[in-house]
Structure formats: C-alpha cells, structure tokens
Amino acid sequence: MNRFSYLRAGDVAEAAREAAADPAARVIAGGTNLIDLMKYDVERPSRLIDITRLPGLRAIEETADGGLSIGALASNTEVARHPEVERRYPLLSSTILAGATPQLRNAASTGGNLLQRTRCYYFYDPGTPCNKREPGTGCPAIGGVNRIHAVLGASEHCIATHPSDMCVALAALEAVVRVSGADGERGIPFADFHRLPGDAPERDTNLRQGEIVTAVELPPNSFGQHHTYLKLRDRHSYAFALVSVAAGIEMDGDRIGRVRFALGGVAHKPWRDPEAEALLQGRPASAEGFAAAAEHVLRGAIGHKHNAFKIELARRAIVRALGQAAAGTPQSQTDKRIQ
C-alpha cells in the first residue's frame, strides 16, 4: 500500500471540494473494494477522504413521489434488511443478498457498490498489462484467460465486466443516482451512470471529477409481486456472477404489463435492453416470448475463447428469470435449487 494522507470530511461540500482539488485523491466509505485494490497497488491514492461521518447520508426514507431514497452510506445489509426495502423492493433486497457475504455486506456502502471496479484478473494484477489500470498498455484478457469477461458492449480495448449484483437490480428498477459536486447536485438515470469501455476503459462511470454519490433513488414502481434475481456462478455462494438476471414484471392478468430486466456479469455495466423489454409488453407470459426477448438482448453478443458459453447461458437465464418473475416465484438466495 502506498503512503497517503487521510482526511475525515465534515460535510459533503468539503468532501467534494477536496476530491475535486486532487485527481489522485479517493473518497472512501465502506472500503471493501478500495482497500482491497490499494493492497494490490492497483489503486494508489494520494489522499483518502473519509466520508463515513458525513451527516444525513445513511438514511433510507420515502421520497416525495412515493419512491424510496437510499443514502449512499447505508450499508448493503441495512438496505437489504430494511423493512421498506424488503416489503416494497424485494428484488433489491434479494439481489444484495445474492452478493458477497454478510461480513462484506455489513461494511460495504450503497455508493461504493456502484463504484466497485471490475474483477478482471488482469486489472487486479499489476504484473500484467491492462488498459483499464494503465491506459495504453493493452488488454491481455482478449486472447488470454477470459472466462469471466464481457460478451456485450465490450471494445477492442477492454472486455471487463461490472461485478455488482445490486446494480443489476438498480438498473431494472430504473433508479436515479443522486450526486453532489462543485457544480451542485444532479441526478443521473441509472442507465447513464456506468459507461461502456470504448476507448477509455479507465473510466467506469460518468461521475465528474469530485462528484460524490449521495443517494440512490428508487421510483415508486417496485415490482413488489413479480420479480426475481437469478445468479449463476462457479460455486453456490461467495462468487461473482458468470451471468445474472434481475427481472421485474407488472402483470396485467396473464399478460405482461411493464417489464424491466437487466443482466449482470456480461458487460462493463449492468445490461438493459429497452427494445427487448418492449417486445414483451402486452404479450402473454410465455417461454417463446421470453426466448424472443432473450434473443434480442444477445443479438450483438461476441464471445471469446473461454466466455462464449455466456451467450447461451444468458439466453437461458433470461428465459428462466422472466418465467420466475411472471410466476411470482422469485429465486431463493438460500435454497440453491432453481425454480
């Protein structure tokens, strides 16, 4: 770990000001990813700005429009186990509980979950090149070991995936990320928060220098009845998703009303495809319909040597997840049998 200075920020404005002043500074909350990366020398901050004592960023409360606002410092556990989240947004709760471990969820913050970085082996290993870690050095995952890498939206510069489970639900729920910076506050629709790698894979998100995530706002539509989070991985717990699907449906009788679904483990960001969702709207819930939507999502998918299986796996996972959601039988995160 490199040497750095430490600042315990007193308020959001101070934290944002200090973060803006020094591009090498990093904001820290739960620390479960940042400290991890610092020990690998992947992150070498000049300064850590500790925001854990900022007032008002931990609250989980109803918003004016009937949605729910989750403070950026609320821990993953606090969110997943919050009575209102469990009651109204069970998809979010389930998705959080599918990720990491109780220990990590107790420490990890909501804002930090959004900002966690890829698990790409090469990104994590400073002994190898990586465009995300050191722009311009190349991407050895292409042509290398790419079992866990992206099949959608990748570029010739980077095929990393975003590792979060929670963010897959937030994409499906169409959350809004509230941020605060030198230019004031703004809300970023979830779909616009994370980026695709393109030719600048070093940038994971569209946050501006110095901007701090203050809250995540959930709209009132919550898919309280018809939802699921289906996570497929290399062991039954404590593993990142190879492919995951968060799905929410508002059933209109036996027809599909509003439907949202997003994929994890397949792209540089939680992957949503509004066109595919539109294909389902107003149709009966059927395996054929789900398969057509899945086909649409994966139409541009590109596989590499070790991850090509993800394309077919994602196709099947979408069909299964949509079926679970339509039937109102969400995937249990403790009973590993998949309905």
Partner: peptide
Amino acid sequence: LPDHNLGRFMNH
C-alpha cells in the same frame, strides 16, 4: 487458470 501468453496463473 494459466495464461499461456504470459506464462502466468491469473486467478491467484
């Protein structure tokens, strides 16, 4: 998982 291009185990 070995990366044979680099001659290195990657998921260490």
